[in-house]
Computed example of a mutant assay.
Amino acid sequence: MLSSLSPGAWVLLAVGAAAIGVSKTALPGVTTLAVALFAAVLPAKASTGTILVLLLVADMVAITTYRRDADWATLRRLVPGVLTGVLLGSAFLAVAPDRLTAVFIGVLLLVLIAVTLVLMRRPQPPRVQGRVGRAVYGTLAGFTTMSANAGGPVMSMYLLASDFAVTSFLGTSAWFFFIVNVVKLPFSIALGVIRPEALWIDLVLVPVVLASALAGRRLATRMDQDLFNRIVTVLTVASCLYLITTAL
């Protein structure tokens, strides 16, 4: 696979790897760009497996960077909803075709984003940390992660609505997805999604991921809270629209 990649393909993969690193330490949502670029160069399964390994590398940088900033109480409270969502997502995958899955998830996430933004504009902040909020967002995060690897937009909206500071947002999100990706790893290996030849591509791209993740860490420390919230919202909407348009 390495020898069959053109210089242009390597450029696209390098840009995608840089997006993965930045997304984990500064700008959640940029991962969508990486998914699009890798899918344009590699076969579907190879693309998914290659990205998963790079995500884990970036996750480790993120959890090291924000090891003191994660809100573990929030993560623990989301567990029941996430597990419920994973079970529902598994059942949905068993009966729904790929195209319907992508469109359904994309539309569902856009509705969630719209509702969240409306709630955030109310005089009193939304109580998403309550039982109902945790159940709704946790279940949707588990469902979308299991059925379409699209849990990022749900978590982004949940943390924004919870009024998390930049570092707390990134730390909590980093640990959530690190745990989720570790759980996915053995299943991906068993299903042949992660292949030996893809690991050679990962080996070449790991330095790019590390460099961009470290650069993202510096960017996050200088970012204004309002600007961060706007960027996350825009990237989250773009993620959903990408998911829908690629399925149509």
Rank of each mutant, 00 (worst) to 15 (best):
T167L: 11
Q129C: 03
V208E: 08
Y242N: 14
D71C: 13
T236S: 12
T25L: 08
G192D: 09
A34D: 08
A9D: 15
V57K: 04
V53I: 15
I20V: 12
L83W: 04
G89M: 10
A94R: 11
L37Q: 00
L214G: 08
V22P: 10
T84G: 01
A62N: 09
F178V: 05
A198D: 15
I20W: 01
S162F: 00
G138C: 02
S239R: 00
V86A: 06
V118Q: 08
G29H: 00
P125K: 14
S4E: 11
P196E: 12
V193A: 05
D202M: 06
D59K: 12
R121Y: 04
G130A: 10
V22C: 09
L13I: 08
W175M: 12
Q225P: 11
P126H: 06
P43M: 06
D163V: 05
V237M: 09
I20Y: 00
N229D: 12
L205P: 07
G29N: 05
T25H: 04
G151W: 02
I105L: 03
V193C: 00
A9Q: 15
L170G: 04
V61K: 08
S188E: 13
M223N: 05
R99C: 00
V53R: 07
V79M: 08
V35M: 10
V182C: 15
W10Q: 14
L12F: 11
D59I: 13
T167S: 14
I189Q: 01
T144K: 04
V193W: 00
G171A: 13
R230G: 01
I51F: 03
L248P: 12
F92C: 05
P153I: 07
L159V: 03
A91G: 09
V209E: 04
T145G: 07
T74G: 06
V234F: 01
T65K: 13
V166W: 02
L219C: 13
G192Q: 09
T233C: 04
L33T: 15
A135P: 06
D226V: 15
V107S: 02
T172P: 15
P80S: 04
A46F: 05
F143G: 10
L117M: 09
P80R: 03
V118L: 10
T221L: 10
P186V: 11
L109Y: 01
V166A: 05
A190Q: 09
N149R: 11
